[in-house]
Write a protein that binds this DNA or RNA. Structure first.
Length: 292
DNA sequence: AATTTCATCAACCGCCAGGGA
DNA sequence: CTCCCTGGCGGTTGATGAAAT
């Protein structure tokens, strides 16, 4: 049958499966076994035709999801390690809700799993404009303290590297922090003005995605928190200085990467290197460098 | 002990981009 | 060049169990 003929046969978008015949809801162990056995022997082929071939009363899309998210042999189950948490924070600061991009940097973890983990655990730890955490009263098992945000570990790690030792006076907790996604949006827009106004209005420096602590000379009132997000409360002047330093930092890192790549020797080895690697994948195809 | 509230996460839905005919 | 199919993605829902009252 010609495509045009098929088009005339059924107008509009064809449903991915016959809703009346497919089963929905949780998968049973029997269904899982059928799916895994079939793929092991034959591969999945075209997902659309997979359920019929495998003998499952499921939508092909549902089969694909079940396989890619839960039954694939290379899936890593269990709790996220602190290293994985840190990596997710760093990647999210760069990519936002691009779960597939984040998952591609975490072997064995799926986008769905990371998305759920972010929404149920990590998102709560990002402070909002009031300086409070985006969370209901924390459960007993959740150790959330505004004075010790999750990226504190990263700061300590970076400090240990001694590449950018922190001035102790810069480490007091930030008290007013804007939302990182807002910042990313404004940063990505390439329009500095809204960002400046935002800072002036709230007397809040910023929440800048950064893989390592940033050191800069400050006036007497600035306080700084460093990590996946760099944040601070400050006067307008010290804000400006902080941003300048931030940009210089990124520029230097980008140059480092460029140099290393030109020697064909850059191999990401840890979370920090992965983040630097990601700078080159930043939205707008690296266009962000013009603002650095 | 019973009921309500909350947190978690597996699964679904709709949309989109890429590729092939 | 257009149309369609497919896989992939991100947002959302709802079932379930745990915690609180």
């Amino acid at each position: 049958m010609s495509k045009r003929g098929r088009k005339e046969e059924k107008m509009g978008r064809a449903p991915c499966c016959n809703k009346g015949e497919v089963k929905k809801g949780s998968w049973t162990p029997e269904e899982d076994k059928i799916l895994v056995d079939y793929i092991t022997k034959n591969g999945h082929g075209t997902w659309r035709s997979f359920p019929k071939l495998a003998g499952l009363r499921r939508c092909g899309k549902s089969c694909r999801l079940r396989w890619t998210n839960y039954l694939r042999p290379d899936i890593k189950r269990g709790a996220f390690s602190s290293e994985e948490e840190q990596t997710i924070f760093q990647l999210h600061s760069l990519h936002g809700n691009k779960w597939a991009a984040i998952a591609s940097r975490l072997p064995g973890r799926t986008d769905n799993e990371i998305k759920n983990f972010w929404n149920s655990h990590l998102r709560k730890r990002i402070p909002n404009k009031n300086g409070t955490l985006q969370t209901n009263p924390p459960s007993k098992s959740t150790d959330i303290k505004f004075t010790l945000p999750p990226w504190e570990n990263i700061r300590k790690e970076a400090e240990a590297e001694t590449r950018l030792p922190m001035d102790p006076m810069l480490l007091s907790p930030a008290t007013g922090i804007s939302d990182g996604n807002n910042f990313l949006h404004e940063w990505g827009s390439g329009d500095e003005e809204p960002f400046q106004k935002h800072m002036d209005r709230d007397k809040v420096a910023c929440l800048i995605p950064t893989p390592r602590p940033i050191k800069f000379e400050s006036d007497s009132v600035v306080t700084v928190q460093a990590g996946p997000y760099f944040a601070g409360t400050s006067t307008s002047e010290s804000c400006d200085q902080g941003i300048k330093e931030h940009r210089r930092f990124f520029k230097e890192e980008a140059e480092e990467i460029t140099n290393a790549e030109s020697q064909n020797s850059y191999e990401p080895e840890n979370a920090s290197d992965i983040t630097l690697d990601l700078l080159l994948d930043f939205p707008n195809d690296g266009e962000y460098l013009q603002y650095v």
